[in-house]
Design a protein around this nucleic acid. Structure first.
Lengths: 133, 133
DNA sequence: CTGACTGCAAACGTTTTGCACGGTA
DNA sequence: TACCGTGCAAAACGTTTGCAGTCAG
């Protein structure tokens, strides 16, 4: 289990129980929508407010602790920032896996072809997982 | 210029001026957010309602005339459905280009690796375009 | 002890819904 | 003419903001 106490303090943010529970939840579940996060949080903090979750998610986005993943059809989910990676998603059960792909070749090709300086490649593959097939 | 009169009728949808203006706008502009579409439409139909735009966009999505493109940081945009393709986006000016890439190799690799039946690959490259550099 | 954080309530922006009128086929 | 589509208004969501009380450092 990751502990974000120090990371938060390094960014001059207080390591409140609510914040640590958010990073813990993301660490455990991998990818979570705001709703899913709220469902988990309310069990630990019976009077937590959605406002607190939004405020902290936005703060953590600004400080790059976490990242947003926009998915086709589904709600946006959030994940702890780690090495750059792509996602594969099951359209039936909603399961999301990380996959590490080397997209350098594609990026280079497109970069020269389109005259763009590309800094990021967001790839989401969708389909049906083994269990749902 | 594409004409969607027949396409609409084939799906038992009436070819109203508003609907044709939506497909025309998307054809001309390529990718549009709801706001951008509204701005264009209000010039042709001074009393058009946002509700009409939403209803028609949703109808066209259901009938697969158009597709949703979720972009990092930006609002979702819509485009006429054509051959499968990826997108490249300028983070400075917001310009979006279509690019045709062969992702078969990647899809096949991931497919067997993750035991997924992959049906779709949504790729958005972000960076800075020549003009903004 | 002090400033930052939480939780509440209200505000705000976006999308959807219900309904009466108008237009397409 | 019959019914579908439009436009309006209101409702329903999702997210943000302001503020008073509380807590981390």
């Amino acid at each position: 289990m990751n502990n974000y106490t120090d990371t938060l303090r390094k960014h001059n943010l207080k390591a409140t129980p609510q914040r640590l529970a958010i990073t813990d939840s993301l660490c455990m579940h991998g990818h979570m929508s705001i709703d899913a996060l709220y469902d988990v949080m309310i069990k630990k903090f019976s009077s937590i407010s959605l406002a607190t979750i939004y405020k902290n998610i936005n703060l953590m986005l600004e400080n790059a602790f976490i990242q947003e993943v926009k998915l086709p059809n589904l709600k946006t989910v959030y994940e702890l920032t780690k090495h750059s990676h792509s996602h594969i998603m099951c359209e039936k059960c909603g399961k999301i896996n990380d996959i590490t792909l080397d997209l350098k070749a594609i990026v280079n090709t497109v970069s020269s072809l389109e005259n763009f300086e590309i800094s990021k490649a967001d790839l989401v593959l969708s389909g049906v997982c083994k269990n749902c097939a």
